[in-house]
Design a protein around this nucleic acid. Structure first.
Lengths: 356, 356
DNA sequence: CTGAGTAGAGAAAAGCTTTTCTCGAGGCCG
DNA sequence: CGGCCTCGAGAAAAGCTTTTCTCTACTCAG
């Protein structure tokens, strides 16, 4: 028989055995109850739940994963956390992960590829069941470490040619097509582009998608209007100046992310170039802030939350797939155009100097 | 004797025993080597490290913490991740935690106090060794759950009257004093305040600190100039309008965080109120973005990174303190004023209507 | 030269859970 | 009425590491 104890007994340790004793059942029965294994009679289950509530017991997840061989943790590697796009993505991932009984282990490389190895070591030590790598980057050799261990992996649009790797196909083509089309309809023919760092695979992909759209609409391509940035706000400021310094600037600037576009807005303001009257600006991402810039930013929407959810589903599909098939898939992520107030009909081509 | 194997042997499992066999030593010796316990002869240690490198072995952190009773995980609970202040804090915490061999478990309540219990359950299941609660909030009863289990806790300026709780003393008094002083020196005498949601303890504290500063400088206190917001950008927009609707607005608005201040900047712009010529605006936080608003925001700096580091040190001190003392302390966090371009000498009091 | 002490290393237990194995009781069919 | 099957539940093993206990061989002092 179980002796009654006070509810707040802080002295004894609180493990599954304690619960079993209090409910007067075996340890196995408690475990089965917790895991909703149906071979427990309702009578005992009720006793167990009562004991759990009274003791305020929480199973030790470390012991659980040790024995079950499943950590129920997914890793998420992001390049930085300063760019608001990524917090949105992280939050989206946390939400869906927790909802589905998984834990999330975030790690940021802080835009330093050298830190990727630290991130991966953390993932391996915690025995994550999958990793979503959102750095849009170039660290194939390191990722091999994961895929060699058959750890499910999700990458964005970069095709690592190994098993256990799912891919998110971000539809930049469509996005830039919509953006350029929008500008063309407004009468723009001279469009500049501020890219991300071209060392990044995704930055090159975006640039190519932009160029493809220019070709599609038979717009002129001028090398000097293709400026390389680094996805920061400062890159937008510098990019605008680089364009302005050429003495003649296009009537529209398309940026490969919103932070850059916001930098362009700021630089344009200081140069007394009016947006959208003198210059149309389009970003990419649709971060929250874009709605609140002056003027509100027209942008190509790429939903961080949608990416996060797709990444989670990809990992879950792989982690929980049957032995036979590996659950690897490609997940298309669509883009769309959000028209706000940073774009307007083109004037004639802007001839510098604007007042600086 | 150990048989030589190919480097990429993917078939066998990779645990400490594998390493021991390959290095031809006992499991205990491998463990001691990994943990830098000095009773291992250099010769064996070298053999062990070689085997670890060759096998690319990473210890299973779950098994480690299960047996050692130390998870080396600290929890971090934040209210939201959309407000850029928190990503900065999270990043700061991750950096210092990883640097010191700890793991971080972030959890966001998404501004929904109801989600706090989910956050706490995650913390308890993962057996964190401490939790930093950065919600600036009101969830004492829930936190009892943690302190009852003797889990080290760090809170911001709210004094939970139990052991195992360290406190970060954010010096709002000094911050608002500096802000108000700055405005007074510029000739302002009519200062409004947009607070956070007054249900939050910290919002009330900030409000009181502001009022104390008004008194100190013998400025008029007008209830209608004390607007309640909710720390969002929209709150700044609404707050400005609420003040404008009164027909007469003060010459300066102090906001209880930067997002609100940015909202005020936006609303003022749309109302054709020029900042700083017609209206001075001061925020609080000094998020990265504040440097890039139009105009750049004068703000009371409260460093998320500094808070994160203090929180980590507080938890570490408690987690690693000797049995005798509990390591509980109070950590002062200083504030300072960052003067940018959203403040300027006061004109005469603004009389509405501005064009809306 | 002998005995005590110590350093270095292995064997084994412990930590908390899941999961497999085992067992008894009860139901059903022939 | 007996044998087989199934259901419900307990006992015990397993999972991977740390840590304690134990043992051997050596050093050094008397």
């Amino acid at each position: 028989m179980t002796r009654l104890r006070t509810r707040t007994n802080t002295c004894t340790k609180l493990d599954i055995r304690t619960v079993a004793e209090r409910a007067d059942v075996s340890i196995a029965t408690v475990s089965r109850t917790i895991n909703s294994i149906p071979t427990v009679s309702p009578l005992l289950a009720e006793r167990v739940w009562k004991a759990i509530r009274e003791l305020d017991y929480y199973p030790n997840s470390q012991a659980r994963s040790l024995v079950s061989g499943r950590s129920r943790i997914f890793g998420l590697i992001v390049p930085e956390i300063t760019n608001p796009f990524f917090p949105e993505l992280v939050q989206g991932f946390e939400d869906i992960a927790v909802e589905n009984g998984y834990e999330m282990l975030v790690s940021s490389t802080n835009n330093d590829p050298g830190r990727m190895s630290v991130c991966i070591r953390r993932m391996l030590e915690r025995r994550v069941e999958g990793v979503a790598v959102m750095t849009f980057g170039v660290e194939e050799p390191l990722l091999q470490q994961l895929s060699e261990r058959k750890i499910p992996l999700v990458l964005t649009e970069f095709l690592l040619d190994t098993p256990h790797v799912s891919t998110l196909l971000l539809d930049y083509k469509m996005g830039f097509r919509l953006g350029v089309e929008h500008l063309v309809k407004l009468g723009h023919r001279h469009i500049a582009f501020i890219s991300g760092p071209l060392a990044l695979h995704s930055a090159r992909t975006r640039r190519e998608a932009f160029l493809a759209s220019l070709k599609e609409f038979q717009l002129p391509i001028r090398e000097s209007w293709m400026v390389e940035g680094d996805h920061t706000l400062e890159a937008g400021v510098r990019g605008f100046q680089a364009l302005a310094d050429q003495g003649e600037i296009p009537t529209a600037i398309l940026c490969s992310n919103d932070m850059t576009a916001i930098g362009v807005l700021k630089a344009a303001y200081h140069a007394h170039v009016r947006v959208p009257d003198d210059l149309s600006v389009i970003g990419l991402d649709d971060i929250r802030f874009s709605e609140y810039t002056l003027p509100p930013l027209t942008t190509i929407r790429l939903s961080g939350v949608e990416i996060a959810q797709a990444a989670f589903h990809a990992l879950q599909a792989q982690a929980e797939s049957e032995k036979g098939k590996d659950g690897v898939r490609k997940y298309p992520i669509s883009t769309s155009l959000v028209v706000r107030e940073s774009t307007a009909p083109a004037r004639t081509i802007n001839i510098f100097p604007f007042p600086r």
